[in-house]
Design a protein around this nucleic acid. Structure first.
Lengths: 230, 230, 230, 230
DNA sequence: CATGAATGAGGGTTCATTCAT
DNA sequence: CATGAATGAACCCTCATTCAT
């Protein structure tokens, strides 16, 4: 895995093929999306190095060679897969950021709601978070993209939300001062929940109660632990 | 990697070789620890499937064969390496748990202090956290061990700390009710900080200010965001 | 590449498409020639096994499938390409052979002139000679064809020329006796020049002075080295 | 096949393993030579791209992997094989060049004698000549090495021989003037004979009479064709 | 104890060939 | 006629594992 230049397969998230076309045409248009989806499942299950392109192909009923019609190689497929999952998240962030006239508290709740729904809410996204943490940092171009386009952007958005809350008197000023250095602390419990769920699943144990975790997160975040903040 | 039965390499964390023995004897006693250390470095850098035993061997100036004198195979080495890192963490937890007569607030600070120092404080432990999340959950026996011996135990300890704080009036009662379902939320920012640091490193960017992050964590945890809790 | 039966693509050297036909018709008629030309370029550059039909196709702006409309497969294309280059050479030989009433010396000069012009004179033919030597002898049907239709025929022609020269007193009798066993020795320097030029090109060095080589060949051939032939 | 830096496996031509060592040791020392020999046979038969490393391995009763203990990859093996065959030829040239006090005629005979014996005399060397012409020029580093270390050196030696013959009055002065531009013309018939033999073999025809060819070469070279040189 | 030669089962990648459109 | 998606058989190369020394 080397860095190289890098082009996400743009377009919507995992294109699915139009219609009103011959069977062959429809299949062709759908292939990249199918492959990416299968690749995600395979990479999530086995990790980057452990995944076999032949298994990716088998998941969608084609042969290895077909993958090479659409992606130059394993690494490019991995990158494209990561990008296909990252772009919607970025769009989600942009959507919230565009939401101008809202109070800090509401915006925060919106942000966390989305974080829990998009990241923790379903098995696939949890696996994706794990994959990102586990493998993407070994692919410099992905690490950089993630850091700049998502992590940093999220940080700025959170900082903005906090500042707005402070301005309206909802949040206390100390929060701004501290969290501007570590805005991700705000969403950390959601990320943590991903791992916990993935781990329980890996251990063959029953999954945790995600709704309860989400509420715990919200409550802790807003109120903290101390009875009487100094 | 399949589950199979599993035996952690007995006791101490990464045995280092006693003394008052011939050089050969001392080397022999030190080997397992050396190998485990080298294995950690290799696994952290390349991931489980991407790591090569030959490279592990080269890191300590021996050849492949030597590793097979001490470990039955790659997977066993991986397990032993994970265990060697996990056991001290468990011991740390036990030590705190044994600390009976302390107030909730102090105990919490102690707990977090240890979490930041042991997990986020140095590059190696951050990498280990990433490795655990990224790979260990694919090894059921490790996932189970981690879940039962560390995660669950930590959860209980945190719950205990909270309950004690509530009992002494330091923490408000709501905290107990919520966090008993998601005690790891308490340490989530520390874990998050690991990823952030690993990711920045992977992206070739300067590392974040960990001390500031730690303070942000503490402050947020204790005070929350809201000015006046309803 | 196996021997199998073998059919040279009929007549003319690299058919080029007549005229007074629709564009489509003209294209269609021209295709085989285009393909053969592209195939030659590709085979010469990469060798038989290293050549890719897709690259052959790309050279003339069509796709792989098109080639299969005109040739049954890679090996057949190779054979056809070799034949297309061989046939004109054979015709050249026949033309000279038909030239009855000329002296040995003139005929010899004619022969060599043609050899240098057709084989050494331009990059493509030099590459073809190399290809023939390098690959065609691994295709029995081509080796046989070349041997019988060109090599042997050339041998006979040369022998004839020598005999005629001896008869007219131009060449000494010994020449006939010896060269009847190895008539190709006469043209060997021209072949050698091909390799030398190809090799210089492969080594990234400036090409040799072909005109000077040709003169050296002629002079050596006619006069030999010794001052006073016994 | 790319150029890259390049190191011939020095040493004698195809080392063969000493003795007075354990079986394993003896085998190990012999392996590179065995592999190179097998590789030559395979490359000669199939060409570079057509050769399979597995078949090379099978020829000496080992498996594919073994080859990779001794050579980094296919191309390196090819280069090493070519070098192993080239070096002795170069040494032969040097030996002749060192032969100071001999007349031009004798030296020339010596040179040609060696050329015929080393290049045309046995099947393997003929195949090697073909391989060199057919493939080596596609490997720039080999093309360059061959050109500089063998071709050029041979040219200089031949030029020297001619000049010496001219000085002693054996050869006429014209020869020097012409052949200094194309010294390889002197040995061209020997090279030609290689192809002819390889081709006959490829065509499944009986091999030519090499001794007669050699004599034809000698005679033609010394006396030329013309009865009375103008 | 340690070495490293050897194995052999893959896994990534290529490409001639087929065939529905 | 021409396309290019899809196949599948190889082929290069890797590497965990074994074992004679």
């Amino acid at each position: 895995m080397r860095q190289e230049d890098f082009q996400g397969r743009d377009g919507g998230p995992i294109p699915e093929g139009r219609d009103s076309l011959g069977v062959r045409q429809r299949q062709k248009a759908a292939r990249p999306g199918q492959i990416i989806e299968a690749a995600f499942a395979e990479f999530a299950e086995k990790g980057y190095a452990g995944a076999r392109l032949e298994d990716v192909a088998r998941r969608i009923g084609v042969t290895k060679g077909t993958i090479y019609h659409y992606f130059p190689g394993k690494e490019d497929l991995f990158k494209a897969m990561v990008m296909a999952h990252l772009l919607p998240l970025i769009d989600g962030l942009k959507a919230i950021a565009a939401d101008e006239g809202t109070s800090g508290g509401t915006l925060l709740r919106l942000l966390l709601e989305q974080a829990w729904d998009n990241m923790v809410g379903n098995e696939k996204s949890r696996e994706f978070v794990r994959l990102l943490v586990g493998e993407a940092s070994r692919v410099p171009v992905l690490a950089r993209f993630f850091q700049q386009e998502l992590s940093e952007r999220a940080g700025e958005l959170i900082a903005l939300v906090i500042r707005r809350g402070v301005a309206t008197g909802e949040f206390h000023a100390e929060a701004d001062r501290h969290l501007s250095r570590f805005p991700d602390a705000i969403v950390a419990p959601a990320v943590m929940a991903c791992f916990q769920a993935v781990l329980m699943s890996g251990a063959g144990l029953p999954p945790p109660d995600i709704q309860a975790m989400k509420e715990a997160h919200l409550h802790l975040l807003l109120n903290g632990l101390l009875v009487r903040p100094a």
